[in-house]
Simulated assay, not measured.
Amino acid sequence: MPVDQIPIGTFSRITQLSLKALRLYDERGLLVPAARDLCTGYRYYTFAQIERGIRIRHLLWLGFGLSEVEVILDARSRGDVGVICDLFAQRLAATEQEVRRLHVIAETLRLQDPLNGGFHMSITEPVIKEIPALRVLSRREQGVYQETIPRLIHELCDCVYPADGRQPTARIAGPIMFICHDEEYRETDADIEVAIPIVGPVGIDASGVEVRNLPGGRFASVLYTGPYPGVGKAYERIFAYMGEHRLIPAGPTRELYLNDPHEVPEDELMTEVLFPVLEAPRSA
């Protein structure tokens, strides 16, 4: 596989577009793979297509339908700002109308139940780091990212700082991290591992929590500052760097959370993205 080709599963995970969606976008001509295996029909994308994939995902998140996304991307390729501004104005008006509708519903429910009362971001230039092996407290399960990651973090922290007030025996030795084991983006059954580097003994009462050694190695690293949903731009930067330096992925990615979302505004959240890499083999 050429170094500038990304398998559909990896492309799915980076852009957060499901395989089903990518196949649909291929059929519609919205996001056509750069290459296809002649024998298997397996799709491959390029580093340059990551931006378009993330843009599609962002427009869908804003509430545009696929037909509108096609119009916006076509207008963008032609430099037709007027069409794009009109569609965004229409979407804004529809969103504000929906907000007003939901506000009315919320107020109605509150009165009837008296008993129950474009991201701002920055990304550093990628660097290569040699990361040592780490002893971590870990929990891994399937679920939805937005719900599962915060819950697993809370459960692991409870193991280190017992709720009954006992003195902790282990000490946290690094940032909390999320490790992604999927080859593709999954909406409801993502393979999620959360880990905390520790030193010292730890008593484990929670089911599914274990102490394990996390392998070290050579990693491409970028520091992303901004809301968590925009972290895909960090992966885009890393993949561009990997393409320029003939590097290929070599294992699960890690996201290290360097500050607390309860203590800083969203646009000040700091996430280090680590991608294990190897030198791409030279063509004969």
Rank of each mutant, 00 (worst) to 15 (best):
G217K: 03
A163D: 10
M242H: 03
Y224V: 02
R135S: 14
S122E: 14
Q16W: 01
L278V: 03
A35F: 10
V83H: 03
M242N: 03
S18Q: 11
A195L: 06
G174P: 12
I6M: 07
P2M: 09
P252A: 13
G143E: 05
M1C: 08
H120M: 06
E279I: 05
Q16M: 13
I192G: 12
C39Y: 07
E125G: 02
G118V: 13
A21T: 13
D164F: 09
Y161K: 00
A133I: 02
P201T: 06
G243I: 04
Q90M: 09
E147C: 00
F275E: 04
R139V: 15
G63W: 08
A170V: 12
Y25F: 15
R57A: 15
G230E: 10
L137G: 08
R55Y: 02
G232W: 01
L278D: 12
P150F: 06
I198T: 09
D37T: 03
A48N: 03
G165K: 00
A93N: 10
G29S: 01
T225F: 08
E96S: 09
L247I: 04
E272M: 09
P150K: 07
V194H: 05
R212Q: 10
Q142K: 13
F239E: 05
G29R: 01
L152P: 12
E68G: 13
D182N: 13
F239I: 08
H120S: 13
Q142W: 01
G79R: 10
C39L: 08
A284S: 08
E184Q: 15
P150M: 05
M121Q: 10
L278R: 15
A195H: 00
I123D: 05
A240Q: 12
I50C: 05
H120C: 07
R55I: 02
R57V: 02
G41V: 08
V202K: 06
L156P: 10
R218D: 01
L17I: 08
F119P: 00
P2D: 14
V3K: 08
L60A: 12
E51M: 01
A34Q: 09
Y45Q: 04
L111E: 15
M121I: 06
P114M: 07
E244V: 01
F88S: 00
V83S: 13
S221D: 02
R57E: 10
H154F: 14
Q5V: 07
R91C: 05
L274Y: 03
R36Q: 14
Q5N: 02
A240K: 10
D158E: 13
G230L: 11
G41W: 10
R55P: 00
E27G: 00
D182I: 09
G29P: 07
R135G: 07
A240V: 07
L115C: 06
E51A: 14
M177H: 06
S122Q: 13
I56M: 03
A94F: 01
I204E: 06
A94H: 05
E268A: 14
L247N: 02
I6G: 06
S12Y: 05
H103C: 00
G200E: 11
D26H: 14
H120T: 13
L111V: 04
G243V: 07
Q97D: 12
V160S: 07
L102F: 03
